[in-house]
């Protein structure tokens, strides 16, 4: 492996950027492709497919054998609101392989006793997200019911291209949210990306049930990121 390729790959991984190491198994040469880099021809198609599926594989392209090792950033779930639903959602999300980050400026809610072993910031979303920015491999769930806290976080999530953006609240609450975001200059195409009411429609009633519905919706978004070809695959 080229030491330069290793350094570049590790740098991408530290910065939570999707990258892929292409190794020509016939001659041992390798190079790093960062998501979005143009790669021409059939190899380019294979690279694009590998980024979408997240699956590393050996493949024949133009009579040569390549190994594509995909490194996608681990998905992170950012919850705005250290509420009852978050208490159930945090451990479930961790089990499903997500890094979990909870933000709530209300210190009575954001207490370590209620959220042991989880990254918890008792501050405003703008402050917490400035230190730990959102990206395309983050899901954001706005759960406070308080526009002062939820709205800036939703806006940040839409700007960052988070793969999932969800907001708790009834249709009526969401209609008012849409009005506020529109007034704040958020384009309707972005607002339409917000999942609201939040969670898959499974008739969830209790906070842990709502957590299941939310997590299921997030996993669906993660596994279907812009990929038509995966629709036929079993879950």
């Amino acid at each position: 492996m080229d030491p330069y390729a290793l350094k570049k790959l590790n740098q991408c991984r530290r910065e939570r950027r999707a990258a892929l190491l292409v190794t020509n198994l016939d001659d041992g040469r390798d190079r790093v492709v960062v998501e979005g880099d143009p790669v021409a021809g059939p190899l380019g198609e294979a690279v694009e497919k590998a980024f979408r599926s997240g699956k590393s594989a050996t493949m024949e392209v133009d009579g040569r054998t390549f190994f594509l090792n995909v490194h996608l950033p681990p998905p992170r779930l950012v919850m705005v609101g250290a509420v009852h639903i978050s208490q159930a959602l945090a451990p479930m999300a961790r089990m499903a392989g997500f890094d979990v980050h909870i933000i709530d400026p209300r210190t009575a809610f954001a207490s370590p006793e209620r959220f042991s072993g989880v990254r918890l910031d008792a501050e405003w979303p703008e402050e917490a997200l400035a230190r730990s920015p959102l990206d395309a491999y983050c899901a954001l769930a706005a759960l406070t019911h308080d526009p002062k806290i939820d709205d800036p976080a939703l806006k940040a999530a839409l700007d960052a291209g988070c793969f999932y953006v969800g907001a708790l609240g009834s249709r009526k609450t969401h209609a008012r949210r849409v009005e506020r975001l529109t007034a704040a200059g958020v384009p309707s195409s972005a607002i339409e990306r917000i999942h609201a009411p939040i969670g898959l429609a499974i008739g969830a009633a209790s906070p842990p049930e709502i957590a299941v519905a939310v997590l299921a919706e997030i996993i669906e978004a993660l596994r279907s990121r812009g990929l038509e070809a995966r629709k036929g695959e079993a879950a």
Binding site: M1, L6, R14
Partner: peptide, 27 residues
């Protein structure tokens, strides 16, 4: 580099220490 034990991060650290490094990969 601060990450929990990760072979590729460790390989970079070893390289910086001047050690010879071989990388084996399940292909």
């Amino acid at each position: 580099s601060g990450e929990p034990l990760d072979p590729l991060m460790a390989a970079e650290d070893w390289m910086k220490e001047g050690r010879d490094v071989a990388i084996a990969t399940v292909v």
